[in-house]
Amino acid sequence: MSKKRSSFHTQKYVITLLISITLFTSGFLISDYFNNWRFSEIDRAKQDFQVQVFSLETQLSYFKDILCADINEDILTHELHLIGEKLQFMENDLGKNHSEVRHLKQYYTLLQIRHYQSSQRLSERCNLNLVHILYFYADRRACPDCQKQGEVLSYLRQKYPLLRIYSFDYQLNLPSLAIVRPRGLVAPQDNYLPIIVIEDQPFYGFKTIEEIEKILSDKNIKPAVES
């Protein structure tokens, strides 16, 4: 009885390894290509938005009698949220420590602050009755309820078209955040996040739809309900 066994196919294992590494790396390169495309999309949207905010700021600063009907504040707000959603998608995919994500997030935060200030002035000037809510969140480890709170606020934003909600990452290292951070928060205690600021008054911890609606009602704020 013959006892022969074919020799170890070293060459084929090496060729397979090279092909596998090439395909594996290609997967990352293709993914990277799409991520770069996404970053350029956000960058373009960010630049378009920046021009529009500057334009609004300029009009508010130089024209006492601006034509309120000509200003599409709601479209601008929608664009701001769209940039926010895209940035959130990138953060979920690449992590908040990704350099490009971190950079864009800082920039987005600045855009939100500028939009918030312009929107307040515009609302006053044109009697738009806009209600501004600032929302401070953190990652799941620091704030387990933040995802829930975000969903509640998104729901309220859809229900009340005149609500203007701005989301800020509390852990973001950006000095300009001090402009909008609630004052008087000297020593943060446990479970103080999420924070919602309505009309300069901060509210700590998760708030339900009903609780937020009650706060708005107590403050005699009655944003219009979506028709």
Binding site: R38, Q158, I209
Partner: peptide, 22 residues
């Protein structure tokens, strides 16, 4: 948290949000 009011949830069909992970 939103009382399963899913009719309000937006379904985003933008190409941007398609999964392109490695």
């Amino acid at each position: 948290a939103i009382d399963f009011n899913l009719t309000k949830a937006t379904l985003n069909l933008d190409w941007f949000f398609i999964n392109t992970s490695a």
